[in-house]
């Protein structure tokens, strides 16, 4: 197997504060990888750093064979990776269709075809193409955010707590949508508060604590790991 995404010894932070003190993770092609850990572990910071939103102070990030360390987000999108932030992840005053078009902003052609492919994956959105995204419910917004990120058919998808603030029913349908996306061939790296559930459908997982790797391994074994269970799964 080849690596789709590899972050090596990444150091990053805000202002004077260093949040990540050398974190390494790897995602293989078509793999689903979860990052779990307590609040303040630096999970979101890691995703933002990988995506070029926060400067990398040391270490490197590779996407496939390209070195994308300190690349701008727009060139990272072009290189084949998309990112869904945890909150405010749709453009409320744009229509659903326009939201998706923005997802394909760097794309030169084939927009129409791709739109249809994405609408096929999210039938709920199809009937509401012209509606303003601001009118959508929380779960629908999350769907739209996912759909926007898929507009370029990325090799790697970064998801920051896709289930945050959703009802249990919505959580299930978002998770099954993520599994579908992954089965279609996109590698997924996600952060989840619902750690137990995330582990149940991920291939592998990393545990991050205070900006350092604490543990990594097969997701299914991690659920049974006593320490993980005690610390992060609330048992």
């Amino acid at each position: 197997m080849t690596l789709a995404l590899e972050a090596t010894d990444v150091v990053a932070g805000y202002g004077e504060a260093e949040i990540l003190h050398g974190v390494s993770i790897a995602v293989e092609e078509g793999e689903m990888v979860a990052i779990i850990g307590p609040n303040g572990a630096g999970k979101s910071t890691l995703l933002k750093t990988i995506f070029g939103l926060i400067p990398t102070r040391a270490g490197s990030v590779r996407l496939g064979t390209n070195d994308i360390t300190s690349d701008r987000p727009d060139s990272i999108v072009k290189a084949g990776m998309s990112y869904v932030p945890q909150v405010e992840n749709v453009f409320p005053s744009l229509s659903i269709n326009e939201n998706l078009e923005m997802g394909a902003y760097v794309r030169q052609d084939g927009l129409r075809e791709r739109l249809e492919v994405v609408y096929d994956m999210f039938p709920d959105l199809t009937s509401r193409r012209g509606d303003g995204a601001g009118k959508l419910s929380g779960g629908q917004r999350q769907m739209l955010a996912l759909a926007r990120a898929l507009m370029l058919d990325p090799q790697v998808l970064l998801l920051d707590e896709p289930s945050a603030g959703l009802s249990p029913k919505m959580v299930d349908s978002i998770f099954s949508k993520i599994v579908d996306i992954n089965l279609a061939g996109t590698a997924v790296l996600l952060i989840e508060q619902n750690a137990r559930e995330a582990l149940s459908f991920s291939h592998r997982a990393y545990v991050l604590v205070t900006g350092e790797n604490r543990m990594e391994g097969d997701a299914k074994t991690m659920i049974d790991n006593e320490e993980v269970g005690r610390l992060y799964l609330g048992e």
């Binding site: 504060a17 609040n39 979101s44």
Partner: peptide, 10 residues
Amino acid sequence: RGDPVAGNTP
């Protein structure tokens, strides 16, 4: 103040 990382957008 909770997680100082998650809430902050750069």
